Amino acid sequence: MNPQKLAEATAQTMYEADACSRALGLELKEVRPGYARMQMNVRDDFLNGHGICHGGLIFTLADSTFAFACNSYNINTVAAGCSIEFLRAVKGGDRLTAEATEQSLTGRTGIYDIRVTNRDEETVAMFRGKSSQIKGNLVATGS
Results as ranks from 00 to 15, higher is better:
Met1Trp: 04
Asn2Lys: 05
Pro3Gln: 12
Gln4Lys: 11
Gln4Tyr: 06
Gln4Ile: 09
Lys5Asp: 14
Lys5Met: 05
Leu6Gly: 01
Glu8Thr: 06
Ala11His: 04
Glu16Gln: 13
Ala17Gly: 01
Asp18Phe: 05
Cys20Phe: 13
Ser21Pro: 01
Ser21Lys: 01
Arg22Gly: 02
Gly34Ser: 08
Tyr35Glu: 10
Ala36Leu: 08
Gln39Met: 09
Asn41Val: 07
Asp45Tyr: 15
Leu47Tyr: 03
Asn48Lys: 15
Asn48Met: 09
Ile52Asn: 14
Cys53Asn: 05
His54Tyr: 14
Ile58Cys: 06
Phe59Val: 04
Thr60Gln: 03
Thr60Leu: 02
Leu61Gly: 00
Ala62Trp: 07
Cys70Gly: 01
Tyr73Lys: 02
Asn76Leu: 08
Val78Ala: 11
Ala79Trp: 08
Ala79Gly: 12
Ala79Val: 03
Gly81Lys: 10
Leu87Tyr: 06
Gly92Leu: 11
Gly92Met: 09
Gly93Lys: 07
Arg95His: 08
Leu96Val: 13
Gln103Cys: 06
Gln103Tyr: 01
Thr106Asn: 13
Thr106Phe: 11
Gly110Ser: 07
Asp113Thr: 15
Asp113His: 11
Ile114Ser: 00
Thr117Ala: 11
Thr117Tyr: 05
Asp120Cys: 00
Met126Lys: 11
Lys130Phe: 04
Lys130His: 06
Gly136His: 06
Leu138Phe: 09
Ser143Tyr: 13
